[in-house]
């Protein structure tokens, strides 16, 4: 059977956590994998230097969407430094299944979007 498609991944794919957009988000960022058309957008609201609310929308394969869903759960309440320190391996560990080289880009799209959003600014926005 396909190890890649364990129940927790399919569960995140079918019932994505934190799915949606945030009106008046402090930070929004979107990116895609041009080769397969996977797309993820992340909206965040920041309070006291931490992620108070994070939501994502997207479309694409189960791996890209499930990993984005998991990522939003991982970083709720995190601060900017924690986001910057988050590594690809952290996401792959969270997915907990072997990801073939061809699918790594799918698995890391959410992280790429989150990091781009975090690195695109020098500090969280002030209120």
């Amino acid at each position: 059977m396909a190890d890649l498609y364990r129940e927790n991944i399919l569960d995140h794919y079918r019932n994505p956590r934190n799915y949606g957009t945030i009106e008046n988000a402090d930070i929004s960022y979107e990116d895609s994998n041009p080769l397969c058309g996977d797309r993820v957008r992340i909206d965040m609201r920041i309070e006291d230097g931490k992620i108070a609310e994070i939501k994502f929308t997207g479309r694409g394969c189960a791996i890209s969407q499930a990993s984005a869903s998991m990522l939003t759960e991982m970083v709720e309440g995190a601060d900017l430094d924690e986001i910057r320190e988050l590594s690809a391996q952290d996401i792959l560990d969270e997915l907990g299944v072997p990801i073939s080289p061809a699918r790594v880009k799918c698995a890391l799209l959410g992280l790429k979007v989150l990091k781009s959003a975090a690195y695109g600014i020098t500090d969280w926005p002030e209120h």
């Binding site: 059977m1 396909a2 190890d3 890649l4 498609y5 080769l35 397969c36 058309g37 996977d38 694409g60 394969c61 189960a62 791996i63 073939s100 699918r103 799918c106």
Partner: peptide, 22 residues
């Protein structure tokens, strides 16, 4: 509405090599 990359990954685990993408 299963993404073709998911189809191809599962087919691969069955030994079936197809192309998925644009």
């Amino acid at each position: 509405d299963i993404h073709p990359h998911d189809i191809a990954s599962i087919l691969d685990s069955e030994g079936v090599a197809i192309r998925a993408g644009h």
